[in-house]
Structures are given as C-alpha cells and as structure tokens.
Design a protein around this nucleic acid. Structure first.
Lengths: 189, 189
DNA sequence: GCTACGCTAAGACAATCGTCATAATCAAGA
DNA sequence: TCTTGATTATGACGATTGTCTTAGCGTAGC
C-alpha cells in the first residue's frame, strides 16, 4: 500500500465525479464528501486548488486507460479495440449510464483562467491515439491509414459513450464497436 | 421578421453558450447579458427556467444540424457527410476552438433533477443518426451496415469536435473526415 | 384619451461556490 | 516522554448561482 491513501482516494473520486458531472459542476466540497476525506485535506494535498485536482484526475484516467489499452494491444489491434470498448462499456453499464469519460468532460468546457486541465486532456487523447496508431502500423496499415483510424477510434468511442448516456442504452456502443472492428480488419488486411 | 426576436436571440445565445461552457457553467444572467436581453425577460419567455432554456437550445441546435445534414444528403451520403463535417469545422474554427456541440455538452453532464435536456439531446442524436442511416440504406447499404455506420459518423464527429478543442487544432477532424469517407464509400459500393 | 397587457428594471432570497485562515489533533522519531 | 510535522476541524470571505416578486414602462386596440 502506497503512502498517500487519502490523496489517491481524492484523485480517483475526482475522476469519477468529473466523468459524471463535468468540471464546473464538481465542487471541492462534494468531492471531499464523496471520497470520505475532509475538506481541509483537499487544499493540503492540492495547494493548486481545483485546477490541480482536475489535472491529476485527468491524468489518473489517462493512466488507467493507457494500461487497459496496452494490455489489449499486446494481442493485436482488434483485441486492443475490444479491450478499449469493454472498459467503457463496463463504466457506463455499472454506473447505470451516469458515468462518462473525465477527459471528454474537461474537453467540452471552456477553461476559466487556467488551461492546465484542458492540456492534460489533449495529452491523454494523444496517448491513446498514438498507442492505437503504432499498433495498426505495426500490423500492416500504412502510416496515414493508421493515424486516421486511430483518431476515428478514439473520437467515436468518446462520442459513443456520451450517446449511451443520453439514450440510457448500450446500443450506440454496440453499433460503433461492430463498425470499428470492420474498419480495423480492412485496414490491416 | 418573426415575432419573438428577443426570445430567439436568447435561444440561439443559449445554444452557443452551452456548446462553449456546458450546461452547469452557463448562467441565466450571463446568457441574458450575452444575448443583450434583460434578466427579467428570460423568466418571462421561459417560465420553466434554466431547464426550459436548455431544452430549447438543444432543439435549436438539433434543427440547425438537421437542416444542414438534409441539404447535404440530398446529393448523396458522401455529400451529406461532407456537409455535416464542414458545419462543425466552421463552428470550431470560427470560435478559435472554443465552441462545441450543445447536444454533446448536455450529454456529458449528470442532470440535477429534470431529465428534459438530456432527453432532448437523445432525440437530437436519433434524428441525425436516422437521417444518415436512411440515406446510406437508400444508396445500397444493408440495414445493419447503414445503422452501424450512421452511429459511427455521429459519434466520431461529436468526439472529434471535442478533441479539436482540446488540441486547438483541426487535425483530428481532418483525419476523422478522411476515415469516415472511406467507410461510407466502401459501404455503399 | 384611456385601458390592458407584453415586457423590463431592480432587487431580494437562500444556497452554494472556491479559497483560505487558524486552531486542534494526531502519529511517529528522538 | 516530548517534540515535531503532517493531517484535520471549523468557520469565515466575497462572489455567484437559480428563482421569484413587485413595481414600472411601453405600445397597440378601443
């Protein structure tokens, strides 16, 4: 067990809240309550205030996603895609269509004064896209096709998760999954 | 010139604010100021308060998008896709990567008490998806492929717009556009 | 002219926000 | 045991939020 357990709880809780309510709607007070930590502790662990919490929450979600994606891609692009989709499906279903992606949530809100959370989101998107593109290229896709398809995968899954929340159904995710698998297969053929 | 000019200004302004800041971060006061209307007027025109404004803003964006999409689809699926993408590219570029889709913005925020804006968002996604699927099916795609591809198009473009905002670049949109055009062409071949 | 009604101005309400003091409390090393 | 530093408790601050009320204004019909 690492050192800062309470701090880690705060970051994980913030990532969850971000995905559900968005950045502006997530208050430090509710985050503290939601994570079982006292309000005073948040400003002790995160002197940068709400902005720092948001950045670390986005990076936390990024790391989690990179891990899942890398594990899947080790068995090839199609398995990586499936693992990526399965991860989001679980999040959406387990939360009864209430949770979403913290990175997307940050990306759709205009920053107040500090760009840091938005830049962290851009880095996360880049990580995922690069990971996918490298795997596609390594399995026979051209550089151009690999980049295009990687971007398509990340964008469509992010968008589909939002659509699933609105529809309260996994149907969009099922359709996107099938469509993407066809695309990937045709690219690496 | 129609009757409720000030009211229409409010709705259009709300759609713009929603796309930029999200639902929770858009205040009625700033909406009024942004639209040049007095605060008192908002509750005169929209007795349902913020919820009603959000619903009408989403429906306004829906209508605008349906119009552009329909116009493009009249010349075939590829032209419809291009028109759809061109519309979002203009919004993103003209706003210097600050504006986004109001429908997506509403979809990524947990509703407080009233589901109405989220349900309006689901209807909008359905409109666009149905329009695209019907066009694809009418041009030779199977029902299944048409539905899958239509969902992929809507989801990926919504997601790509968010990615463009984070990256402050249109590169993701360019890549998604190329990838989607390939998919559409292969489906209706 | 006068009345009726759509619209606006101005302000108040409780609630919540991010942030920051300051003091109390706790755990572990000397 | 005593001390030191990390963690928490508590409460305050100014600002902003959604909402509503009440009073005033305008103009179109009679």
């Amino acid at each position: 067990m690492t050192k800062h357990t309470a701090r880690d709880q705060l970051v994980a809780g913030a990532a969850d809240m971000l995905g559900r309510r968005g950045l502006r709607a997530s208050s430090i007070r509710e985050l503290a309550k939601h994570s079982g930590a006292p309000l005073g502790s948040t400003y002790h662990y995160f002197p940068g205030g709400k902005t720092q919490v948001a950045v670390e929450a986005v990076e936390f979600a990024d790391t989690l996603t990179v891990r899942a994606l890398s594990e899947g891609l080790a068995a090839g692009p199609v398995d990586g895609l499936r693992r990526f989709i399965a991860m989001w499906r679980k999040i959406v279903v387990d939360s009864e269509f209430r949770a979403g992606c913290p990175v997307l949530a940050v990306s759709v809100e205009e920053p107040d004064d500090d760009d840091a959370p938005l830049r962290a989101a851009a880095r996360a998107f880049d990580h995922w896209t690069t990971l996918l593109a490298e795997s596609l290229a390594a399995h026979g896709a051209t550089q151009e096709a690999a980049q295009q398809t990687a971007t398509l995968i990340v964008a469509s899954i992010e968008g589909t998760v939002a659509m699933c929340r609105a529809h309260r159904s996994t149907t969009p995710l099922d359709r996107t999954a099938d469509a993407l698998e066809d695309v990937v297969r045709s690219i690496i053929a």
